[in-house]
Amino acid sequence: MNTIINGLAKAISLILSFDRELYAIIFLSLKVSGLAVVIASLIGIPLGAVCALRRFFGRGVLVTLLNTFMGLPPVVAGLAVYLFLSRSGPLGFMGLLYSPSAMVIAQAVIAMPIVAALTWSAVASVDARVRETALTLGATPMMAEWRMLSEARLSVFSAVIAGFGRTMAEVGAVLMVGGNIAGYTRVMTTTIAMETGKGSFELAIALGVVLIFVAFVVNVLFRMAQGRGMTV
């Protein structure tokens, strides 16, 4: 019990004193997951929307695949990306392994199916008559599809949040492709794992507190967006 209390006390002092190492780790986590989710959304939102709005050969298979990969264990994604980016792998010439870029790639791979599958579900739930109504108001087919996506915008936003939440929480992929290098690829989750192994619980607990806080803030932001209604 002592360890926990001491840990919590030290954690709070680390947070409040703006400890440099701690905040560098926090910002790196936010940057890596943030950028990964942006990339995942740039691909995933259009992909999910197209699956919901248009018919094409193989659509059903694609949707099933997306839903399957939504549950992909991050460590498996990490392994795949590692094998690709390793010097002995096909993309080795890019020299990306053990860098923040590799972590962003791995996390984008993890988040993309989540964003795509949830976007698909959101757009598919929109009243189909919205598309026709848009056409009767003079929209082009493309504008009408965009309107369908807009109708689901809150759900799409929550899909992005879900992707962000998953990437902030994972440790397997970023550890494998990032290497947990001090000051370079060390993020909150890998630091917690490492520090716990070393027995220095203060830093680990501090980061745990911060992770929970970040999740809380993200949820608050989401509720605010919801509460504001849908006035664009």
């Binding site: 807009s150 109708e151 849908m230």
Partner: peptide, 20 residues
């Protein structure tokens, strides 16, 4: 049974005009 969009009444009325 009219279908209105998930936005304000004003935006609904503006939609077709903006599309043009």
């Amino acid at each position: 049974a009219p279908v209105l969009f998930n936005t304000s009444v004003r935006e609904n009325i503006a939609y077709g005009l903006k599309a043009r």
